[in-house]
């Protein structure tokens, strides 16, 4: 009880100033991660967003203990994964990118194998398998071979496998890579439900909408270096404000209005439209009231705000990644 409380109050995963260097002191030396700092709270959905080869999977491998940092500390549930590997592995589950399922076994056989191998109590194995199959909505296909499944179904099954062991932390490596919209939504829904149940979810993705839809906390990572972290809204705000775009019937009126409000608002004049930076609703109302006399010369209003893609490109640039 006390222990649980402790976990709730502390960060479940803490990565402090971690460097990871492959083939150190050799010609092939390669810095995979540099000065990585991550703190993840219990029950949070934490999203690692980055282009290909940015170090997302490497970070996941640090958390699950497959890799050890060259410098810095990493603790998972208060333990060092490389030292207390077995204890840490009891509390986390990974859904790897490649799904790691046996194509020639059925969905149920895959889950039964994993449950038995992991050492789930034999009495409850069958019930547990039924339960997780239900969660990922694959009960009706449980006796079909995985080789016949679509990519989305395979990812859902891999998620079910991760849930078999009732982990505290779920590591999802690109959970919706290459799946259709329906499967993606279903997976997102399942992830949200898991988080609501108190599980900590750490996922990697290079899909902006995924990070935006799921991530309570997002860390943009590029070339092994953390670039920016925060909630999706915070990140968006960082690179720009919401804008109200007022379209006029004629450029003359647009110019007139510009002259009228320029001293009070952060506004730019572009042909027959004015772009006004307005971060709160109050400012928008106030402005619209001031402009009521120009109503008949205004054609329509638009609102725009920076999306995560803008944020992402802002921080990582447009250079191609291999």
């Amino acid at each position: 009880m006390d222990n649980n409380k402790l976990i709730e109050e502390k960060f479940v995963v803490e990565i402090n100033k971690v460097d990871l260097i492959f083939n150190k002191n050799s010609k092939k030396e390669f810095k995979a991660l540099e000065k990585l700092d991550i703190k993840i709270r219990n029950g949070q959905i934490f999203c690692l967003l980055g282009p290909n080869g940015s170090g997302k999977t490497t970070t996941i491998n640090l958390i699950n203990g497959l890799l050890e940092p060259t410098h810095g500390d990493i603790t998972v549930l208060g333990m060092k994964p490389s030292k207390s590997r077995k204890t840490v592995l009891r509390k986390i589950s990974l859904v790897p990118q490649e799904t790691a399922l046996y194509n020639d076994l059925t969905a149920r056989e895959n889950l039964l194998f994993h449950a038995r191998y992991y050492g789930v109590n034999r009495k409850y194995i069958s019930k547990k398998v039924d339960e997780v199959l239900g969660i990922v909505q694959l009960k009706n296909r449980q006796n079909d071979r995985v080789g016949t499944f679509s990519g989305g179904m395979q990812r859902r099954l891999a998620l079910a496998r991760a849930l078999l062991t009732e982990p505290e932390i779920l590591l999802l490596d690109e959970p919706t890579l290459g799946v259709d919209v329906q499967s993606r939504n279903a997976i997102w829904e399942q992830i949200r439900t898991l988080a609501l149940e108190g599980k900590t979810v750490i996922l990697t993705t290079n899909y902006m909408e995924e990070a935006e839809a799921l991530g309570e906390q997002v860390l943009i990572i590029d070339k092994g270096k953390p670039v920016k972290s925060g909630s999706p809204n915070e990140l968006k705000r960082y690179i720009g404000q919401k804008q109200m775009i007022i379209h006029f019937t004629d450029t003359t009126y647009a110019k007139q209005v510009y002259d009228y409000i320029a001293k009070d608002y952060d506004v730019t004049f572009k042909g027959n439209q004015l772009n006004v930076n307005t971060n709160t609703l109050n400012i928008q109302f106030q402005l619209l009231q001031q402009l009521s006399k120009y109503e008949k010369h205004m054609s329509h209003l638009d609102y725009s705000e920076p999306n995560l893609q803008d944020v992402f490109l802002h921080f990582t640039g447009k250079e191609l990644r291999d």
Binding site: N64, L66, R85, K86, T87, L89, R90, L94, P96, E98, T99, A100, L101, Y102, N103, H114, Y117, Y118, G119, R161, T165
Partner: peptide, 17 residues
């Protein structure tokens, strides 16, 4: 080869089983 090792390796049971 069939990329299933990760799910086995990442269990607390280790390599011996």
């Amino acid at each position: 080869e069939e990329r299933t090792a990760k799910s086995i390796v990442l269990t607390p049971k280790g390599f011996l089983p």
